[in-house]
Every structure is written in C-alpha cells, then in structure tokens.
Computed example of a mutant assay.
Amino acid sequence: MEIKDARVIVTGGSSGIGYATAQKLAERGARVLITGRNKEKLERAAEEIGAIPVVADVAREEEVEATFRAVREELGGLDVLINNAGIARRKSIEELTVEDFEAVYRTNVFGAAMMAKHAASIFKEQNSGHIVNIASTAAKKGYATGTIYCGSKFALRGMTECWQAELRPHNVRVILVNPSEVTTAFGQPDRKERPEEPNKLRSEEIAHTIVATLEMDDRGFIPEVTVFATNPFKK
C-alpha cells in the first residue's frame, strides 16, 4: 500500500510500540489517529508525532464507537487499523481469578475484536483496508504464570486467522505481528519505559516490521511475522 496520505488508527499509541509505529507512519506522510487512556500522556505523544489524539479505552465498547466517530470527523475514513493496545497479568494457576481474565481479555481480545468489527465495516464498503494485530511470541508458546496473557494472545492469533478468511474476498489484508521481548513500559507497574539494552528489541524494530508489511504492494500480504532479538543472551 501507499503509506503517504493513508488514514490510520493506532490503539495504545502514546508509548512503546504504538508510539514508534505512529511516528514512523506519520514520517511517511500518513494521517494518524492515536488512542490511549491517559489524556495528558496521549496529547503529549500526539503533539510530538503530529497525530490526532482520542482518549479512549478499547475495553469499553462505547469508547470504541466514539473512536470511530472521531475517525469519520477527523480523518474522513480509514485505511489501516493497528490493534496495539494490550495489558498483561502474570498469575500462577492457583492464583487465577475470573476478574483477572476479564480485565485482560476486555482489552486484548474483546477490544481488538470490536475495533476490527467497526474497521471491517468501512473496509468492506470500500473494498480495501488493512488490519495489523500486535500479538506476541506468547501467542505461539506458553510459559509458567502466562495462562491469562498467553490465552489472550492465542485468542488474538485465532481471531486473526478467522478475519483473514472472512475479509480476503474484500481485498482486506489482516496481518499478525508477534514481538518477542521489547524494552517498553509494557508490564511495568509504574508504566515507565524501560531503558534500552543492546541485546534486546526496541519498539523501533517492531514499528519497522509493521510499516514494512504494510508497504508491500496490495496484491500480496504477510499473514504472520515473528520478531526475535538476534542474540538476547550475549553479555
């Protein structure tokens, strides 16, 4: 696709992977709308990027609907949805609660699905569009204490495959991106960005991957891509 002048939503766009992706897209001339829950942080990020901020929590359906009203008003339509917003909780099997599942699934699964639902309606009508779901290597392999988070990302991976089957006849590309460990604020109790480490992935590597998959000519698409650090064990 042609990035210049493309109309894009990036959820969770105020920091980390979402911020880096929105920034790269804006640098290439895209018109970008970012969402997030923290108004001050979101507006500061939007000003730095040159994006449109919409304070919204994808876990709340009424706020998803408000986001798409803003899309119509601010962008006049949509070409790309990047489902980046996500949260995590680590619990041993003995500690699991329904409340923890609901909290994570409302963002990682239900929120992504409701965003995709509204985007798909636009994309089917115009017979084109792009959905990028940010999952994780946790969508491919579980780990101890990962029941809730891995379960949510396995669900997102499964939904991606369903949307690919449903939307390909409408020229809609649905792409899954699985980052390995990235030095961001994700999972940090204080929500502060972690410092870069020379042997770990940065948000920039994932943003590069997202933009590269989108830039492929629309006749082809990459269904799924996984990004690992080259050598995370080196000293």
Results as ranks from 00 to 15, higher is better:
residue 82 I to R: 03
residue 122 I to N: 07
residue 112 A to S: 13
residue 92 S to H: 07
residue 104 V to A: 01
residue 146 G to W: 07
residue 97 T to S: 09
residue 106 R to T: 06
residue 143 Y to E: 05
residue 86 G to H: 10
residue 109 V to L: 08
residue 88 A to Q: 02
residue 98 V to Y: 12
residue 81 L to P: 11
residue 121 S to Q: 14
residue 120 A to K: 04
residue 116 A to G: 04
residue 129 G to E: 07
residue 99 E to S: 15
residue 129 G to Y: 06
residue 93 I to N: 02
residue 115 M to H: 00
residue 97 T to Y: 09
residue 127 N to D: 12
residue 102 E to I: 08
residue 102 E to G: 12
residue 136 S to R: 06
residue 144 A to C: 02
residue 86 G to Q: 10
residue 120 A to D: 02
residue 81 L to I: 07
residue 122 I to L: 13
residue 148 I to M: 01
residue 139 A to E: 05
residue 89 R to A: 12
residue 131 I to H: 05
residue 111 G to L: 00
residue 125 E to F: 11
residue 147 T to D: 03
residue 104 V to H: 02
residue 93 I to A: 00
residue 82 I to N: 11
residue 91 K to Y: 11
residue 131 I to S: 03
residue 134 I to M: 05
residue 145 T to P: 08
residue 132 V to W: 05
residue 91 K to W: 09
residue 117 K to W: 06
residue 138 A to Q: 12
residue 82 I to M: 10
residue 104 V to L: 03
residue 147 T to Q: 13
residue 82 I to H: 05
residue 96 L to V: 11
residue 84 N to I: 10
residue 115 M to K: 01
residue 82 I to Y: 02
residue 84 N to W: 01
residue 143 Y to C: 11
residue 126 Q to M: 07
residue 105 Y to I: 05
residue 83 N to H: 06
residue 130 H to D: 11
residue 88 A to P: 03
residue 106 R to S: 14
residue 80 V to N: 08
residue 107 T to D: 04
